[in-house]
């Protein structure tokens, strides 16, 4: 009898462990291990070999092999990044583009989410469907389609000239404007959905209460709707900001050579220069750039949560 309960206890404990273990294994296998590999390459030296870097760990040499291996690792790739201004310019430019694009996406996405949340209940699933619909076509095809719209003789210019708004075609393609258009278009659903989720949960009577207590429409929006939508806004901004920072496809297809973004630099280092160590260093710094604000933000949230108690 007691054996059996012990067994079930052990089984239960095992099951709990398995539950906790699965996400950790996932993180370990698909995030931490690749990251460590990249980190290792970033402190190696370029070499004409396969793989194109040295040293590689040779375990057959035993303890001495490991010491040799560690001795050859250094940070010269990171130092190199600070010497060529291409890199920090690319980071800065990426950061700027990501921040501006996130703000633009928020400005477009919030009103859409707000309108969706206030639409009659029976329309909402349809509206939601419409927001998600573009995902059914390949991302690449959709970005290519924008070339057709934005180019010199593209639909937009044709349309504007037919209306008589402009005389000669606007140069949009291969400028930052085209990149912003592409990013806002591509990432808009990631902004709309989390904001919509928070706004939809919101009780309408809160707005009425605010107005009852003397708020104008604008004040009640500012004092009630916006603070309550904050978690959705923050989630949406992260979902747009993070992939945009390392975005490669949109700037290379729509931005031409005028747009400097770190994703493109990364690509060039890997595939044009075949300099894996420098490319890895670029990637590690990019990751830190992304992780830092997320960690800071979470810290802040935790502190606020504690203050609430």
């Amino acid at each position: 009898m007691s054996d059996m309960t012990e067994d079930t206890d052990r089984l239960g404990a095992l099951r709990r462990w398995a539950l906790i273990l699965v996400p950790y294994l996932w993180l370990l296998g698909l995030f931490l291990v690749p990251f460590i590999i990249v980190l290792k390459i970033s402190v190696s030296d370029i070499a004409l070999a396969i793989p194109p870097y040295a040293p590689t760990l040779d375990l057959s040499q035993g303890w001495q092999g490991l010491r040799d291996f560690l001795g050859k690792l250094d940070f010269e790739n990171y130092i190199f990044l600070t010497q060529d201004d291409l890199y920090w310019k690319a980071y800065l430019s990426s950061l700027r583009i990501a921040v501006v694009a996130t703000v633009l996406t928020l400005l477009v996405g919030f009103p859409v989410a707000h309108a969706m949340a206030r639409a009659p209940e029976e329309w909402r699933p349809t509206l939601m469907m419409l927001v998600i619909l573009p995902f059914w076509t390949s991302f690449l095809i959709r970005v290519y389609a924008w070339i057709g719209i934005l180019s010199g003789e593209g639909y937009l210019n044709q349309f504007l000239m037919a209306l008589g708004v402009i005389d000669s075609p606007l140069t949009i393609l291969n400028t930052p404007v085209a990149v912003y258009i592409g990013i806002v278009y591509t990432y808009l659903p990631f902004m709309i959905l989390p904001i919509y989720a928070t706004l939809e949960k919101m009780d309408d009577s809160l707005i009425e209460a605010a107005e009852d207590l003397g708020c104008t429409r604008l004040q009640s929006f500012w004092l009630v709707t916006l603070p309550l939508a904050r978690p959705g806004i923050i989630a949406g901004c992260f979902l747009v900001f993070i992939p945009t920072l390392g975005e490669f496809v949109i700037p290379s297809l729509l931005g031409g050579s005028n747009t400097l973004m770190v994703g493109k630099v990364l690509w060039d280092e890997f595939f044009q220069n075949r300099d894996w160590p420098v490319a890895s260093a670029v990637a590690v710094i990019l990751l830190l750039l992304i992780i830092l604000p997320v960690v800071l933000f979470q810290r802040n949230q935790e502190r606020q949560g504690e203050a609430g108690k």
Partner: peptide, 20 residues
């Protein structure tokens, strides 16, 4: 007269307290 300009206050059936 819009609600915010009426000298009337209401206590809502659902309370409608601001959660934030």
């Amino acid at each position: 007269v819009p609600p915010n300009r009426r000298a009337v206050n209401m206590m809502f059936q659902s309370y409608a307290l601001f959660p934030h």
